[in-house]
């Protein structure tokens, strides 16, 4: 199981997995995924309680008890320009989370050596950003007495005590990041806020608010290079206001979580 990182289920197609760094079919000629298989997985993920997960479904994902993020693909239903739900789900992308102790060691020997700095972890999807953030949280908590607030929008960073994030870490689960940054700073008085996947303008504004409030922010964003990130209008404020001190670029060149570059922003 340690080598399994992704499972893809598509109706009438064989199971496709990412195992030991390679995509491959599972029982390609003997089993095709059926619509009822997909339905069964969704029922189990929602614990037969669709109403409790409708916001997640609307955003295109569900999260398993062990932090597995399950992306949903089907037919989007819109009402007055807003997505209402995703129906007739035909594909699931199940990403298996893991905790890798020690993968953040290089940060604590370099840019965190003199103290925690504002850090942005950048990579395309599935390169180990979340795993790195998880380990950063654990190590900060272990090595200092800093209060860490994790904004876990998709319940995958922490996921029901499946992962060790340290004893001084508070987790705000299922939270909108913009809300988490502002209310977290005001109500929980964190020293460090860690959150996954800044993607919208309000996320970036939230991070900016936290940094300007004197809280260190460690976050991640999707891009292959820092130049690509600069080209995203959503992230203008991030560079204009110099929210982050450093950026770490990850790839899968030598396996998931390969550190390509550490950039002083």
């Amino acid at each position: 199981m340690d080598k399994l990182s992704e499972i893809r289920l598509r109706v009438n197609k064989p199971i496709f997995i990412h195992y030991n760094g390679v995509y491959q079919f599972l029982a390609k000629n003997s089993y095709l995924v059926s619509a009822s298989d997909i339905e069964e997985v969704i029922l189990r993920l929602t614990k037969h309680s669709v109403y409790a997960y409708e916001d997640n479904i609307r955003q295109g994902f569900l999260t398993g008890d062990a932090g597995e993020r399950v992306g949903l693909c089907g037919t989007c239903v819109f009402e007055r320009g807003n997505i209402l739900t995703i129906k007739d789900i035909t594909s699931l992308c199940i990403r298996v989370p893991r905790q890798v102790f020690g993968i953040a060691d290089f940060l604590f020997k370099s840019i965190f050596a003199q103290g925690i700095v504002n850090l942005l972890v950048v990579s395309p999807p599935g390169m180990g950003k979340t795993t790195l953030l998880r380990e950063i949280a654990r190590q900060i908590s272990t090595k200092s007495t800093k209060n860490i607030l994790v904004l876990d929008e998709k319940n995958e960073l922490f996921s029901l005590n499946s992962f060790d994030l340290g004893i001084t870490t508070d987790v705000l689960s299922n939270v909108d990041k913009a809300y988490g940054f502002t209310k977290g700073v005001a109500n929980l008085r964190p020293d460090v806020i860690i959150c996954d996947e800044l993607s919208s303008k309000t996320d970036v504004e939230g991070a900016n608010f936290a940094v300007l409030s004197g809280v260190k922010v460690i976050a991640s964003a999707h891009a292959s290079t820092i130049e690509d990130l600069r080209r995203k209008p959503t992230f203008n404020m991030l560079f204009d206001n110099k929210i982050f001190d450093y950026a770490v670029i990850l790839s899968d060149r030598l396996g998931l979580g390969t550190v390509e570059k550490v950039i002083n922003l």
Partner: peptide, 10 residues
Amino acid sequence: TLGSIDAKGQ
């Protein structure tokens, strides 16, 4: 029918 539909429908 418990849990089979969204909150409004439920």
